[in-house]
Design a protein around this nucleic acid. Structure first.
Lengths: 341, 341
DNA sequence: AATTTTTACGCAATCGTTTCCGAAATTCGT
DNA sequence: ACGAATTTCGGAAACGATTGCGTAAAAATT
């Protein structure tokens, strides 16, 4: 790296390092003339202050950490995109950590981040996370933390989510209204708030339409092969479902694959709908009805909140728990009119 | 953050900070007994050395930067996944920067990174990048830099790519062998090595089969709407193509959409094949034939190389220019047998 | 037993910036 | 013109960890 330093700049100009430092941050204590001289040389030498020295002295890293459970998921990618955008606007740097849904990895990362390496954290917890001590231990340090999507509601930290329950309700209702009565719900296993909210939406819809006895809930997880087997057996039971509602994009892919394998026709034999942020879902065969989450917006909003916390600005009352609505896009996998065979 | 410091630990134990420091890095100059005492207290207080102080003193940030042109692209996501994996193994942190194909942003980021914030960079350059001064200026600082996918071959820095030309050749050849003679190639605009290599593969195949006069090259770019229009006009010309080969995943999505809009049947009226790392491509209607790049492997390999450079280890001779083969997956959009109408 | 080597640790400088205190020098008010 | 306020800058102490050098004490060697 560049071995130029503030001190050398100061020597060169025969002024003190403090003056150079102040000039660079445009302090009012420095005359315009001096500032100009400093800036000229700094520009000429293309000097940049050492960020580690600066971080050490100011106790500020100008860096945030984003912790996500997986990356091969359009939702998290879009969130990350939003976060990165806001971070750049705020002159901040973004560290990325992927837990791969592994609780221990999450614990380790949070522990490591207690060193002051970052000024704040944005996290969507792993599905295997049930204990939140590593998170409270972090928050207790006084470092800002914002949850998005997979939040921990019992903690005193801002949460940005979508209206999972409402969205799940509407999706289920849509299936019911188009004639389905045996709707299977493929849930993400674990104790995540998101899982229970989506399940609640599903159950609530069943309840309102008197179909609670027909509920079919399948807990799916990380292992695609296991999921595949579970989905297969869905079609091997007595009363096969007439619709499948998957809580996670990935599950819908597997479901499509299984249907292809078992030669089960969507939507004729089974309708499909899923939470999904895959733009290509409209190109599926058949195109997939989807609950599209405002991922980019969630990223931007949660980053905004994090920076308010970092700047010690007061949050707007609405910013403690932000809920950005998803929207349902009905496509061929769950047509409004009954499909013609 | 934790306000515990080495010095306080030292006071507590009535030893000097240097002893504590050395104990933590398991120096042979410290007795086992002292090490144990230090470790016990450190564990009890859950102390972690301040990374900024450490970085400043050691002139090492334990951080790398990954610069990608876009994130909503499965290829880059998978590369990032591989990089993050290797980084964690090496106890390194990963900063992520997205240029959004914007040259100026790339320049700014590279300039900013000359401050010593990171120990190395991995980059896939923006499509609008034609001038490489910002990169050479960085490399001249002596900081390791590795290119992946979109490389700059004229520079003296390791490159990790796939065999774009060969893959493009095979894809084109496949189309020709299944009866296509008017194959359009949707190229990524700009002067990227990757673009010209893929184009060369396409052209070479045409040449070998005496179809060079039928070449149709469409330069597509960032703007989906512009691309859409260009693709539309492909079908409005005299001799409409009987196959389309897209160099970028995104272009294939747009092409599918246009075909849907114009009611052009794939593969009956036009065959399709594309570079794509979208797992869901097999679920498209029709399923998309794809050149799948070894994205995860590219990420791991390039990260491996970067860490060798950072550790001042010698590169294996094969690691200067690494080429990992892609593989072609033929699906319904370009069936081997002529489709029955 | 005297000397050399090894072990185990402390001192203090250092990394590069920032910022709290002054303290000249200048400007202002009357 | 004289004290007061302001402007403009420098000195030096942080920030927290690392490390070269020095040195007692213990162990090993002759």
């Amino acid at each position: 790296m560049s071995n130029m330093t503030l001190k050398k700049i100061a020597e060169e100009l025969k002024i003190s390092p403090s003056t150079v430092s102040r000039s660079l941050r445009d302090s009012h204590e420095i005359s315009q003339e001096t500032k100009d001289r400093v800036r000229a040389l700094v520009a000429k030498l293309d000097f940049q202050p050492n960020p580690h020295a600066s971080s050490l002295r100011k106790n500020k890293s100008k860096t945030i950490a984003v912790i996500i459970p997986e990356i091969e998921n359009n939702f998290f990618v879009q969130v990350l995109n939003g976060i990165e955008e806001i971070a750049q606007n705020n002159d901040y740097h973004v560290l990325i950590y992927i837990t791969h849904e592994n609780y221990q990895r999450e614990v380790d990362i949070l522990h490591m981040l207690r060193s002051g390496r970052v000024d704040g954290i944005m996290i969507s917890v792993a599905s295997s996370t049930t204990n939140f001590e590593h998170l409270t231990a972090y928050v207790d340090l006084g470092v800002p933390l914002v949850f998005f999507d997979r939040v921990c509601e019992i903690m005193d930290a801002p949460c940005v989510t979508t209206d999972d329950m409402q969205a799940a309700f509407e999706a289920t209702e849509h299936l019911i209204k188009t004639g389905c009565s045996k709707i299977a719900f493929l849930s993400l296993d674990g104790n995540l708030s998101i899982s229970s909210r989506r399940r609640s939406g599903y159950l609530e819809a069943l309840k309102q339409y008197g179909l609670l006895n027909n509920k079919i809930i399948v807990e799916c997880g990380l292992d695609n092969e296991v999921n595949r087997q579970k989905i297969r057996s869905l079609f091997q039971r007595e009363d096969t479902p007439d619709a499948i509602f998957t809580a996670i994009e990935k599950f819908s892919i597997t479901t499509y694959e299984v249907c292809k394998e078992l030669k089960i026709k969507i939507p004729e034999q089974v309708k499909m709908i899923s939470f999904s942020n895959l733009t290509a879902a409209s190109l599926f065969n058949p195109s997939l009805s989807a609950i599209i989450q405002p991922a980019y917006g969630i990223g931007r909003e949660s980053a905004d909140i994090l920076f308010r916390l970092i700047d010690r600005k007061k949050l707007l009352p609405t910013q403690k728990k932000v809920i950005i609505p998803s929207h349902l896009v009905i496509r061929e996998s769950s047509p409004v009119q009954q499909a013609v065979l």
